[in-house]
Design a protein around this nucleic acid. Sequence first.
RNA 1: GCUCGAAUGGUGGAAUGGUAGACACGAGGGACUUAAAAUCCCUUGGCCAUAGCGGCUGUGCGGGUUCGAGUCCCGCUUCGAGCACCA
Length: 923
Amino acid sequence: MEYNHRDIEARWQQYWKENKVYKTDIVEGKPKFYVLDMFPYPSGAGLHVGHPLGYIASDIFTRYKRLQGFNVLHPMGYDAYGLPAEQYAIQTGQHPEVTTNANIARYRSQLEKIGFSFDWDREIRTCDPEYYKWTQWAFIQMFNSYYDTKAGKAMPVADLVAHFEKHGTEGINAWGSKELHFTAADWRAMDEKQKSDTLMNYRIAYLGNTMVNWCPQLGTVLANDEVSEGVSIRGGFPVEQKLMYQWCLRVSAYAGRLLDDLEKLDWSDSIKETQRNWIGRSEGAEMKFPIAGSDIVLDIFTTRADTVFGVTFMVLAPESKYVDMIVTPEQRQAVDDYITSIKHKTERERMIDKKVSGVFTGAYAVNPLTGKNIPVWVSDYVLAGYGTGAIMAVPAHDSRDYAFARHFDLPIIPLIEGADVSEESFDAKEGKMINSCSADLDLNGMEVKDAIAATKKYIEQKGIGKVKTNYRLRDAIFSRQRYWGEPFPVYYKDGIPHMLPESMLPLQLPEVDKYLPTETGEPPLGRAKNWNTPDGYPLELNTMPGFAGSSAYYLRYMDPRNDKALVSREADEYWRNVDLYVGGTEHATGHLIYSRFWNKFLYDLGVVCEPEPFKKLINQGMIQGRSNFVYRIKDTNTFVSLGLKDNYEVTPIHVDVNIVNNDILDVDAFRNWRPDYADAEFILEDGKYVCGWAVEKMSKSMLNVVNPDDIVERYGADTLRLYEMFLGPVEQSKPWDTNGIDGVSRFIKKLWNLFYKGDTLLVTDDEPTRDELKTIHKLIKKVTGDIETFSYNTSISAFMVCVNELTQLKCHKRAILSDLVVVLAPFAPHVAEELWHVLGNESTVCDAKWPAFNEDYLKEDSLTMAVSFNGRARFNIQVPADMAAPDVEAMALGHENAAKWIEGKTVRKVIVVPGKIVNIVVG
RNA sequence: GCUCGAAUGGUGGAAUGGUAGACACGAGGGACUUAAAAUCCCUUGGCCAUAGCGGCUGUGCGGGUUCGAGUCCCGCUUCGAGCACCA
């Protein structure tokens, strides 16, 4: 029997599928393990070799855990809503569902060919009404909840209403967009619409007038994580700021918990750090600056309370509502002109243009500590959306304030001893305070850190401010003006939004004639006929964003066909949360924040029993493309090989990597590739055409896309799996390069040759020797350790060493080979399954038990120890493994070469680390 | 600017503070072949020596801790990632 991957892999894949070998059910008393991959968006291009990298890593872990006796949940599904299918629909009129289903079918067949052990019975699609029913359901729960800051969790809005009825806002602890104050009488006097608007200030899912990232080309708003440097991540179109009435999720209320709970997670430092940056906690103080000659009070936020004595002016964001309230008649025209000029600029232009600009309002604020009047300015360097949209400016110790003060010639008062502020500000939070003394507060001589604390305490006592923590994290904008997304379970009655009753879920996406906005500028759902409730009330026209469906999908896998609940209590309590989550870093500030938020919300409601969704996270690296080039001699159809190209004037041309093998061009394939090249001539080196190469993004235009199907066809799925893991650490990005794949392919053949020579089965039942046992137990130990740390590349090296050693030993013994096959099964499941049966086993290899290694076999009879003199001259000595340190020492000093080296010197110190090394210091 | 991470042969990459370069690719040499493919064996960080033994040097740069540093500490350089008028 020759090794034939096509036959073996097709046969076992079919067997696994027909017998549902990987179907998983709750087994009470059996320990569970949940391994999840980030589900893919099924794009039209199909999978390339980069996609399965993470899936292979997680599949190895899954199979390993099964062999260790765990009940492993390992599902797969599709993040099926998304812009590409909709854009395609706009161009072709093809319903996005049709495209999406076709793409899913392709993905499924590609995934199956790689031999993953998914429980396909649990497959989900976010665009399936049975699935998005629960996305809509969760939204309704968010609408009906507010965040109670005292309880530190979401609570029913009904409770809040009850409180308003009795006490108004007195004594509430609700996280709101703004701080509102009203009495019970005020509340009762409100009409329906006013009450609805008021509650929007507190609901976790709320309609709000917010500045949104509006992308005209995409015709939709985008969340902050979908925008980078002023352009959309998808498509790279300009994004502008626009005030719109949109559905939002109050993610900001959970900022503190999202930040604190990061501590508990077994995630990489870099991704935790990214989330910390994104959440952006800053601890500081909010302080009141009264406006001179009025009863208006400006609230500002600062992290440098210690610098109040150095405040020489105040600055408001152009959008601040205070601007209009305090501007003096003489300055009104100038201020209006300035604000108009700002509005004409996009966010991007404002960011790029770092020129200092601003205008004086004519008003003065009173410094609460010094009692002095200080001018209030307006400038776009202050952001409306952060803190209170107003700042106290301390030019001596803040570079932005410094630039502003210099530009408008405002005073600069240094507050830290020895700080030279003649050229630039001194921003560091260190040094001793000066110039900071009033009648009842003296900071002079204090360290900055102490001065901050002292000032905070002082302002709280005096009632002129309070300690406050601010977060950079904003609420998530949840409306999209698109077709291909979940409809909101919302209808409007007299302009007031209401949730549909649960009995009407799922609210299914309607048919439309076109996938474009309506003539009146409404979203595509505005085209749907009878898009009303049965009572005739209009339904919401926006749809939900991409992250809606992906925020709780890991819960649905636990109980995917349940039509009574998102997940049953039984399933949730058994599977709990994801033990291992594998996916890319690109979701750090999107999906991985939203999912954590969504899960915490459901946790507050008591729907789920774990506060965090993903215990351990592994970020697989990106697979980059490795492009190949041919070199055409200018104005000819002659191509010159890489090593000779410097002798000619050449143009490099991308060549399809699929007609290049190990950088050697298949010249016949090249001639057939494009008509232009049919009569191409070649200047070869050593009879070969060598191509140049470069690492670039894997994309169609670079002609460097490698389809896993081609690799599977040529080398087999097992080789693909082993090779992708062998390429390097899972977490590292690396270019796809098939140059080493033959090594892995050879390994499988060598493994096969341990079982067969031609058609003869070599397997015997002889007792293994000590050397053979040592070889296999070395492997078991290494692989067991490596899998736990995802060091799959070194595991595969260990397999190669093991097979080479067994080949040398001519070992064909069942006991040894059996362990080898089981340990290999997670990595190369098809060939392992085949050989497992060759060894005479009836059941599948996943029913086997992971072999335990036996330290006794690994013990050496003797150790080679390095004897080092002064850490330099080194000799090796052989000592019995169990020899005591003093004897080792004696032996080391007695060594022939050592004796020569020590001659005439004195031994000062001898260090023996058992099993490792002997160090001898001489002098 | 702030934060985090990385740097080891021709290449991908190994090394709980203990003989740096496992394993693989590539390259060179050899065996078997009419020949090629496949397979097998040897060499392969650099420099020197070579009949043979061997010697020196070496993990981005400069210091330090240690008997001993790729690994730990301090200071740089370069590259990558995240955040960024966030007060």
